[in-house]
Amino acid sequence: MNFNIFLPYLLVAALVTYLIRAVPLVLIKKKIENRFILSFLYYMPYAVLSVMTIPAVFFATNHIVTATAGVAVALILAFFKRDLLTVALGASFAVFVAELIV
């Protein structure tokens, strides 16, 4: 990507991300008590990761078939509570094998 086009994007992403972290750490000393806000922030990460993963993951490899194989392996490993690394590498390995077959 052209660096001159890239740079403003980089600055926007970095600045927004940094301010989200820095402003509360510097300014807020009290605990949030509002139950709705706490609940909203509790569910948000799961919702974000789910939206980012499905359906995008099915288009993350060369074929939708191999991606599906990877997702299946990831779901099984995650269901049995394997750690992040095992799930990620297991899914990658499944895709690799599936691509050799397809």
Binding site: M52, V57, A60, N62, D83, L84, A91, S92
Partner: peptide
Amino acid sequence: SAFGIAIYGMFIA
């Protein structure tokens, strides 16, 4: 292609 799924695998985990 195989590693393309790795980061989503972590999200699933």
